[in-house]
């Protein structure tokens, strides 16, 4: 538990999203870029949102990480295409922001007694 009542996993998730978003946007060597982009686009937002659902079942939690991450990225990308504002960089920034917002929401949940 951190000083403000926010758990370390929530803090780590938010910071990882921030760092990996920046790293992905700057650009990394090919295999690292794939890993970082997959994390920031799918896994981290999926994990951040799955934690908001209060799921306790480990298997369902893992499934929701994948499903929520992929579904949210699909929704974000599709909306951006319809609005004619799509670029992969914009998607990275949006998914990073969604992850951080989900972490803030989770932190508020954790701060509530």
């Amino acid at each position: 538990m951190s000083g403000g009542g926010v758990t370390r996993p929530t803090l780590a998730l938010g910071l990882a999203a921030l760092a990996l978003s920046v790293a992905t946007l700057i650009g990394l060597p090919t295999p690292l870029q794939a890993v970082a982009a997959t994390a920031v686009l799918v896994l981290l937002p999926g994990q951040a949102m799955a934690r908001l659902t209060q799921v306790t079942d480990l298997a369902l939690s893992a499934l929701l990480v994948l499903a929520l991450g992929l579904a949210t990225l699909t929704a974000v990308s599709t909306v951006m295409f319809y609005l004619v504002v799509w670029s992969w960089q914009a998607c990275v920034i949006t998914m990073g922001a969604i992850t951080i917002l989900a972490c803030i929401a989770r932190a508020r949940q954790e701060a509530t007694p």
Binding site: T24, T30, Q33, A34, A37, T38, L41, L73, S77, F81, W86, W88, C91, V92
Partner: peptide, 8 residues
Amino acid sequence: ATVLAATG
């Protein structure tokens, strides 16, 4: 499109 462009 997003995954291919972002991951390379």
